[in-house]
Design a protein around this nucleic acid. Structure first.
Lengths: 208, 208, 208, 208
DNA sequence: CTTTAAGCGAGACGGTACGTCTTGTCTTGGC
DNA sequence: GCCAAGACAAGACGTACCGTCTCGCTTAAAG
């Protein structure tokens, strides 16, 4: 849908489109952004957009990715330290930057646009989730995460609360919140200390 | 916007609209459902819809609420038991029934419609979140949840992971998943060895 | 296609559209006139035009007919007198008034638009040709036109030369021209005086 | 615009374009034929078409002329004989062969394309009209056409009726029709009893 | 022979208009 | 007096072609 390295005659057009998309989204929001508007802003024919992208979402996603790349996790050896860092950064990003609104809109659109979903998952969220998983694998090897844990679930435990608050906008994001999640996540993930390395649905007696 | 109990000449119209909305959403999905389509299906003038609802989302929300009410939490005294029950039920609901897809779309659509957000939060999610919080207060009193915990955050830890998976549709829902989340949540919430643990009305008598 | 007496909400829109169409055609010509332009000029949604007319041609035809009605022939009893009058008037009309260019364009469009052809023939040319035919019938009864003549052909003999010059623009239109056609037409149409009133297709003596 | 004899690398392209144009016109009609379509059909870049022709009409005209040349008039000495022959042939050509429809469209399309008009008149209709005129000059010398007649008008009297019927498609073409026009034309053109009649090489031996 | 300029196919590009769709408001006519 | 039906102004949609513009790749000539 949006392979940026195809034989394409004019980079000028391509760049102008992504810039225009980013501007439009930040000025009037994703919902009011239109292909027609992007084309006009970019001084480009609509067909030139449709030639390279299949939908508004695809263009905007590309625009986002152009100025935003997924970071790798730090790995200090201490999971809690790294996690706190990442969750604080994540919370900061989600704390109502316009980019947050755009991302929310992308999530909506991808619900009825399989190609867009594919793109978003492959190019944006997938790498991010996998980076997280890699860090957890490392932590698991270092004994800081329970060996029996399904790491896909673990990833959700890390970010799920943030998504919950972000979507529902029930409470504000701040560093305190990131720290609270960090603490709870660490408690959830760390090894149970004693007993069988079997899947133990509920250990529950942690104190002697 | 959506006071279903105003004096209104024809309940027939009102009912027909909600039914038509529900049908449309289940047949062609939320995204392709239009006010015009609902009106046509219901044999009703568009104005009649606009008279009582402010947007497609509002109608659909009403339609959903008509056939769905929020349940109160069980309280057996044992948080884990209750939580497992509730999470299993939630997972089952979210396991891609068409109604789940609609709700997902609604949740994201409300991002650019404050009135809709208000409605969804007040009439659907608010009660649900508060019911959860009430159960956690009770558990906290019973010493099964760390006394220092911010229960708003605690609620997010319970449902956040499910939301994450539900919105992104990264992995399927099943009972195993509900149980995994339950386990992790319990580990995150229970009192830590050192501090708190003010009272233990009910001993965690899982192992004799 | 364009019954002007349907149940239609706003005459304002209808009138504005026809006026805008007429203006546009006279200012920028038929070819550059667009539905979109007419709508903009008229302060009307495009759909309102498409609701009542099926094509640019249909709108323009209506606009033409609004300000131009087909006249009945005079009948002084003397065919030549009447014919000269009508041909002079016709030549004057065709002598490159902007209306002439528009009519030529309509003829073009109707070549690939059966509905438009139908309209043009029924509402514009048909009545005109029939009025002519009626006058010829009267002349035939009065003995000024050969009784054996096929009047459809006779009509074409009257107007054909004008069409020829009008389409090909080989020579200018003027009164002299109208008179020349009149004279020739009269010579062609008048009874042969003597001999059989039978249809005399051809003497046929092609070989000596 | 269309000098087919310039130095040009590949006759293949040139031929392919004309063939494609002819095919397209006969398959989907003149109106729906596009330069783009012709290029695609011919396996040719659009620019190659624009290099030699200025418009769709120009290409199609060339395509038509490739397979059609203007015939000279016969001159048996008897105008009626020759005219009947020619009009029958003309009527037969115009009797809706697809090529006739194309020519009709071309004729009308040239109304807003002066270069096309120039081409059509110079290369197609001009020669034809002049051939006709030459025959009439000859007939006039022979006393079969009124000496006072403007022969430009006379030409229009011969073909005008046919053009009328052909453009408006009011009635079918057949031999009867050609003959009817012939008769009327002869009656219109022949010398009047009183004036002129300078010479009568061939007596109009219609009545003994 | 080369070289080199042009022709060539392909199709991207900035545009314009198309005809359709949906939105939220306004109007008519029947019940 | 209410309300279905649907007209209305607005404006985005995705498509079709326009005529111009690169891109490399043949070719056929001039050196």
């Amino acid at each position: 849908m949006n392979s940026p390295d195809q034989r394409r005659r004019s980079d000028r057009a391509h760049t102008a489109i992504l810039t225009a998309a980013a501007e439009s989204v930040s000025e009037i929001g994703y919902a009011k952004t239109t292909i027609e508007g992007i084309a006009a802003r970019a001084g480009v024919g609509k067909q030139t957009i449709y030639r390279w992208w299949s939908s508004k979402g695809a263009v905007v996603l590309d625009a986002l990715l152009t100025e935003h790349t997924v970071d790798e996790w730090p790995d200090t050896g201490e999971l809690e330290t790294d996690l706190r860092l990442v969750l604080r950064a994540t919370a900061a990003e989600f704390a109502d930057a316009p980019i947050s609104a755009t991302f929310r809109a992308l999530l909506l659109d991808m619900q009825h646009d399989p190609a867009l979903r594919e793109s978003v998952m492959t190019r944006m969220l997938g790498p991010q989730l996998e980076a997280t998983k890699r860090r957890l694998v490392s932590a698991q090897k270092g004994g800081q995460v329970d060996a029996d844990l399904d790491l896909d679930v673990a990833v959700e435990v890390l970010f799920g609360p943030i998504y919950h608050r972000w979507i529902l906008q029930t409470h504000p994001f701040d560093q305190t919140y990131a720290d609270a999640i960090t603490d709870l996540a660490i408690r959830a993930l760390r090894p149970t200390g004693k007993a069988g390395r079997r899947r133990r649905t509920t250990p529950d007696r942690r104190t002697p």
